[in-house]
């Protein structure tokens, strides 16, 4: 199988590491070769963060380059727009519609772009946008945005929902398990 590429983008501190951990765990169990690449350190302080997840028969590069991502999973809508160049032709964006203003917008040096979802679609991206924060809160924690997104992403994979749920059970501490399983279900819709 040709290598498939999932990019997870968001704002430092939003919990993208758990999402990539979940995907890595699941895809390895499915028998694929997997690579997951993260960036730690400085960018975690509220900066723009990117995680690459790649899987297939044999994966070489740990990173995803422009025009290569089959999926961009975005925790924040402006981050989806920032990484649009990484999407391949006919690639899909799964994004949270939440807006988190970066410091240049807060200080007034820049404006937050409007109508981003429509603009992404105009460029040929297939966009699946949803208010993950509200769904996460409905599940019981605003921190479960990551698992809401994983729930939605799971719809586009041939892997049964139970396998995703088993992965969540294996990776999430017991006291947060129910919240995350609920978040997954709400995301999957």
């Amino acid at each position: 199988m040709e290598t498939k590429n999932i990019m997870i983008v968001g704002v430092g501190g939003q919990g993208s590491l758990l999402a990539s951990k979940l995907l890595g765990y699941l895809l390895l169990k499915e028998g694929y070769d997997v690579k997951v690449s993260e960036v730690h350190g400085m960018s975690q302080r509220g900066g723009s963060v990117v995680t690459y997840v790649r899987f297939g028969d044999k994966v070489y590069s740990p990173i995803i380059d422009k025009g290569e991502a089959d999926f961009i999973v975005s925790f924040e809508q402006m981050e989806a727009a920032r990484y649009l160049p990484y999407l391949r032709e006919n690639g899909r964006i799964v994004t949270n519609t939440q807006r988190i203003e970066p410091m240049p917008v807060i200080t007034g040096a820049a404006a937050y772009p409007e109508n981003l979802i429509a603009k992404l679609e105009e460029k040929g991206a297939v966009v699946d946008a949803m208010d993950c924060l509200t769904l996460a809160e409905e599940a019981g924690s605003s921190k479960a945005v990551n698992i809401v997104l994983m729930g939605r992403l799971s719809k586009y994979f041939d892997i049964p929902a139970e396998k995703w749920q088993q992965a969540i059970e294996a990776l999430v501490p017991e006291k947060f398990r129910d919240v995350n399983l609920k978040a997954f279900e709400l995301g999957r819709g």
Binding site: G67, A81, A110, K119
Partner: peptide, 18 residues
């Protein structure tokens, strides 16, 4: 190189902050 598209408008930077 694989084809890729981007938005015309500039996306504000998101630098790390305290």
């Amino acid at each position: 190189i694989p084809a890729s598209v981007s938005l015309e408008e500039e996306i504000p930077a998101r630098p790390p902050v305290m």
